[in-house]
Design a protein around this nucleic acid. Sequence first.
DNA 1: GACTATGATTCTAG
DNA 2: CTAGAATCATAGTC
Length: 389
Amino acid sequence: MDDLMKRLQTTLAAENIDRNAIAKSVEMNPYRRLLHEVLLERKDLLLVGSRMNLVALFDTEDASSEIEEILAQFENPTFPLEEINTEKDEEWQPLERKYKDGVNQIKEEMLTKLGHLEKDLETSLTHSEKVLKSHRDFRPIDERDYCNIRQSINKHFDQAKINLRGEAATKILVLRRDIEQQGRKRRNFDKNTTDTLQNWFHDHRQNPYPSDQEKAELAKQCNIKISQVNNWFGNQRIRSKQQALRMEEEERRRLAQLAADEAQAMQNALADATVVASQNLVNSSLLNLPLVNPAMQAMVIPAVQPTVINNTNGFLQQPNYFPVGGQLPLTDNGNGQVALKSIDVMTRRSLFQQFYTTDFETFGLVQQQQDVEQQQQQQQQFTAMNYLG
DNA sequence: GACTATGATTCTAG
DNA sequence: CTAGAATCATAGTC
């Protein structure tokens, strides 16, 4: 009994009820007082149905039509879930099953509780009659008293029933929302759909904004909702724009890298040519060198060789200095390596000439670097050219 | 399991 | 309301 009392107090506290107001109300109305007495005798009845509360004891509300509408689903076999992704969704059937099972379970629970309520109502009525009879010792009791107490108790239990139904309806709504949420799990469109949308987008890329009518057509054609068409075009527009920006940026970076590489190559060539020129001057004549350098014949350079090999013999050893489209003095030895072909003096001269006259003069980058060292190198380069020319 | 692709949602501005 | 942008959440891939 103490436990029951505690639960009652907790309920009262939780429901934020002014107990004085209730007491006053009870005091002012003998029937209510009687009812209160009955209910205090059977406190457990107060706790039947989790939503039953003392406010409902005195202020009966009508059952909302909305609740009845939802509960009608107990009897209505049609599936009341929102149609989500049409019939092509094979995961839909289990969800539908799950929902129906859930609704049935809620129904069973509600019916069980209703049964309990009915039993408690009977008990309560019998008990109230007993209490009323005991009152005969203190005051006159007539049929009206019995009628009133029965009415009050019925009212109380009616409210409990309404609350119970409301609770069941809420459960159904929650269940429905959960299931619909699961059904709404994102699924990719099939290839046909994306192709159709993709084609439309591409054909109208100048102005990729379908009209309402076109959206409707696309939706029908793709078997998706108009809102999905809207989503798709919204995403597509923004994402294709982002992609274009990324490509642009990438291209810009690539060109910058290309220019940097060329500039570097040119500088290497310049440095190399400078060595050649000075060597030639020291050795008095490039033409005096053997027609075919024996060391050069055996020289093997890795196919990917980024560093400039010191040119001590007056030969160009980095073939990539030669003009684009010009013939490279290379031979592939089949082992992922290339060897310099032995070349005769005339060929060498022509390659040098080609290199100096064609490339150096047309390559703006060298001209732009106006520092002293660069100028000196240019000086030497022209000396070499004159010498060879 | 990290990463990207993608459909949906949310927020903002007009 | 719409479009754009950011973000979320899941799919899909390696």
